[in-house]
């Protein structure tokens, strides 16, 4: 029986102090976050507000013309609940000229353009508000590579990146994320009718348990199959994790000198702080 339950008090304490420490030690006191209306950004936002104070968090709602009205509305629910400064910027006029250049553009390309457009706005507002951009990627999507490189993956710090989606749900419930956000099916809302589980082909409940055994508990694929996971599913997930390793790394540099960034020039980001 795989149990992903976490102690939400401990998680809350660690994650809020992480945010406070990593934001303030680089000379900032504020943060900026893109609110999609979904669960991951809602939880990240609640944590950031608790860490830095409501007045120090700028929430951005960045709809595109096909975005579900629910997304906007749910983001607003959270903004109202937390009483934080917010801005709503329609990214349609920015994204459309690029999207319109190719009438045969695929959903994936469109989705990537929208995710990266939102990243551009996030980083621009970061400069205006003098706030660090907060990441909202959970461990499940980072491992599966279910995200856009340099898009929704771009941030200065990522408080929820070591929580599986089911744990994000548990912590969100404990921290009072509004019910409509908790209850709706997860979706990137990059095109109409998109849902994560529909696109991935499995549920978060299933895949989180499998990833927990494979990654956290170091089970072999065979041991996972013996635990009752379908063989095809196990291999499909392992294949996805491996194929998407590139999204979890900085681009490799070809080594020429005796000391090369990434290989033998090694310092933490918190160097000197």
């Amino acid at each position: 029986m795989v149990d992903l339950t976490i102690n939400t008090d401990v998680a809350r304490e660690i994650l809020t102090s992480f945010i406070r420490s990593e934001v303030t030690r680089v000379g900032y006191s504020r943060a900026v976050i893109n609110l999609s209306g979904g669960l991951d950004s809602a939880l990240s936002c609640v944590l950031v507000v608790e860490a830095l104070g409501a007045e120090n968090v700028l929430a951005l709602r960045l709809p595109y013309r096909t975005s579900s009205p629910d997304s906007l509305e749910h983001a607003q629910l959270l903004i109202d609940q937390l009483r934080i400064p917010s801005e709503t910027i329609d990214i349609t006029p920015m994204a459309e000229p690029l999207i319109q250049r190719d009438p045969n553009i695929s959903n994936v390309r469109k989705g990537n353009i929208l995710a990266r457009m939102r990243m551009i706005v996030l980083y621009d507002k970061s400069e205006v508000f003098k706030g660090l951009p907060i990441g909202t990627s959970n461990k499940t999507e980072i491992l599966l590579g279910y995200s856009t490189l340099w898009g929704d993956m771009a941030s200065a710090i990522n408080p929820i990146g070591d929580l599986y989606k089911t744990q994000v749900r548990q912590l969100s419930r404990a921290l009072g994320v509004p019910a409509p956000i908790l209850e709706k099916p997860p979706s990137a809302d990059l095109w109409q009718g998109q849902t994560d589980e529909g696109e991935l082909g499995f549920t978060y409940d299933q895949v989180d348990k499998l990833l927990y055994l494979l990654v956290d508990q170091r089970y072999s694929p065979q041991e996972c199959i013996e635990e009752g996971f379908d063989e095809k599913f196990v291999h499909a997930v392992i294949g996805r994790v491996r194929r998407n390793q590139f999204k979890r790394m900085m681009p490799p540099i070809a080594k020429l000198s005796n000391r090369t960034i990434g290989y033998d020039f090694l310092y933490l980001r918190d160097w000197g702080t």
Binding site: D3, T5, I6, N7, D9, V10, A11, I14
Partner: peptide
């Protein structure tokens, strides 16, 4: 370094 968060009160 703290690690091993589960449902218990301590890491």
């Amino acid at each position: 370094p703290g690690r091993g968060l589960n449902d218990r009160e301590k890491l």
